[in-house]
C-alpha cells in the first residue's frame, strides 16, 4: 500500500512529509492494524478454546449429545429469531425513513427522527423486561387467535403459550431494537436522493408515491440492504433480551407461538455459562464460533449484494 501510493503522492511536495501528515498516517495505519488484530485475536481465541470440544466424546458433552445435535437447534433458533426480526423491521423502518425524509412536515420530521434514534439508546435488558412484563402477556390473546384461525400454517400450529415467552414475541422485540439502525441508515440516504430526478418525476405527472418508487427507493436500495444487514447482525448477537423473554426448551421447530422454542446461541451461552465447567465451556465457545461464522457469512453476503446492486446501477446509468 505504502509502496504503491506513497512516493508519488508525497513526491508532489518534493520534500519532507509534514509532522501532521506523518502523525495522521501513522494513527490511521495503527487503527487499521488494531481492528484486524482484534478480529484475528477473537477468531484465534474461539478456535483454540473450541478445539477440546471437537475431540471430546459424546458422553462428556453437555446433555450427552453430539456437537451437531447440540448446536444445530441453537443455530436454527438464532437465524429464525433474527430473520423474523428483519422481516418485521425492514418494511417498518423504510416507511418510517420515508415519512421523515419525504412526507412529514419539517417541524415534525426532526423531532421524530430524534425519537427513533432514541430507541437505539435503550439498553437491551430494558427491552427484555418490557417484552416479558408488557408485550408477552399482551400477545397471549393474539397468539391464541393465530392458533385458532391460522393454525394450518406451520408457524402458528400451537399449542399457544399461556405466558407469552415465545419466538413470536422475541421477533417483535428484536424488530423494535433494530428498527432505529435500519431507519437511520435509510433516512440519511433517502434525503440525499437527487432533487432533480424527483422534481422531474413530479413534473411528468407522477404522484408522490410514484415519484418515491421511481427515484428515491432505487437510489436508497443498497442503503436499505446494508442497514438491514447491520440490523440482522445486531439481532443475531442479541443476548439479554432473548435470555429474559424466550422459553428456549425445544428443538428445531417453525412453530412461533409455543412454549418449546429453539434457544439462540448467544442466549444459550449466557444462561449456561455460569454453571458450566471443563469441556462444557469449550462446547459453549464452539457454539460462539459458529455464531461468529454465521455473522461473518451474513456480512459477506450483504457486501456482495450491495456491490452487485451498485454495479447494476452503474451499468444502468451507462446504458442510459
Amino acid at each position: 500500500m505504502e509502496a504503491a501510493t506513497g512516493p508519488s503522492v508525497w513526491g508532489l511536495r518534493g520534500g519532507e512529509r509534514r509532522l501532521g501528515d506523518r502523525l495522521f498516517s501513522g494513527a490511521a495505519i495503527a487503527s487499521g492494524i488494531a481492528i484486524l488484530t482484534v478480529l484475528a485475536g477473537v477468531a484465534i481465541f474461539l478456535l483454540i478454546q473450541a478445539v477440546p470440544a471437537l475431540s471430546a466424546s459424546t458422553d462428556e458433552l453437555a446433555e450427552g449429545k453430539g456437537l451437531v445435535e447440540y448446536i444445530a437447534p441453537l443455530a436454527f433458533g438464532t437465524v429464525l429469531a433474527a430473520t423474523l426480526a428483519v422481516i418485521i423491521a425492514v418494511p417498518l423502518a423504510v416507511a418510517v425513513a420515508l415519512f421523515i425524509s419525504h412526507i412529514a412536515p419539517r417541524a415534525l420530521a426532526q423531532p421524530l427522527g430524534y425519537i427513533v434514534d432514541l430507541l437505539a439508546a435503550i439498553p437491551s435488558i430494558v427491552y427484555g423486561l418490557w417484552g416479558i412484563f408488557v408485550l408477552g402477556p399482551a400477545a397471549v390473546g393474539v397468539m391464541k387467535w393465530l392458533e385458532d384461525n391460522l393454525g394450518f400454517l406451520p408457524f402458528f400450529q400451537g399449542p399457544a403459550s399461556v405466558t407469552g415467552r415465545t419466538m413470536f414475541v422475541v421477533g417483535i422485540v428484536l424488530a423494535v431494537m433494530i428498527l432505529p439502525i435500519i431507519s437511520a441508515v435509510a433516512r440519511e440516504v433517502f434525503s440525499q436522493a437527487p432533487r432533480r430526478q424527483q422534481e422531474g418525476a413530479l413534473a411528468l405527472g407522477a404522484t408522490r408515491w410514484e415519484m418515491i418508487k421511481m427515484t428515491v427507493l432505487p437510489f436508497g436500495r443498497s442503503a436499505v440492504i446494508s442497514g438491514s444487514m447491520l440490523g440482522l447482525g445486531r439481532a443475531l448477537g442479541e443476548t439479554m433480551a432473548v435470555v429474559i423473554i424466550l422459553s428456549g426448551s425445544g428443538g428445531i421447530t417453525f412453530n412461533l407461538i409455543g412454549s418449546g422454542n429453539p434457544p439462540t446461541i448467544a442466549s444459550n451461552i449466557a444462561s449456561k455459562f455460569p454453571e458450566s465447567s471443563g469441556i462444557e465451556v469449550n462446547e459453549l465457545i464452539l457454539s460462539g464460533l459458529v455464531l461468529f461464522a454465521i455473522t461473518l457469512l451474513v456480512n459477506m453476503g450483504a457486501r456482495s449484494i450491495i456491490s452487485r446492486s451498485e454495479r447494476h446501477a452503474a451499468e444502468g446509468k451507462k446504458r442510459a
Binding site: E63, R165, K272
Partner: peptide, 27 residues
C-alpha cells in the same frame, strides 16, 4: 443441573420461573 425434558416452558433464574408461573394460568 440442566432440565432434561424438552418442550416445557423454560425461564431464566428463580425470578424468571416465578414470573412465568405468575404470568400464565395453569402453570
Amino acid at each position: 443441573d440442566a432440565w432434561p425434558v424438552k418442550g416445557g416452558e423454560a425461564a431464566e433464574g428463580t425470578s424468571g420461573v416465578v414470573e412465568a408461573v405468575g404470568a400464565g394460568e395453569g402453570t
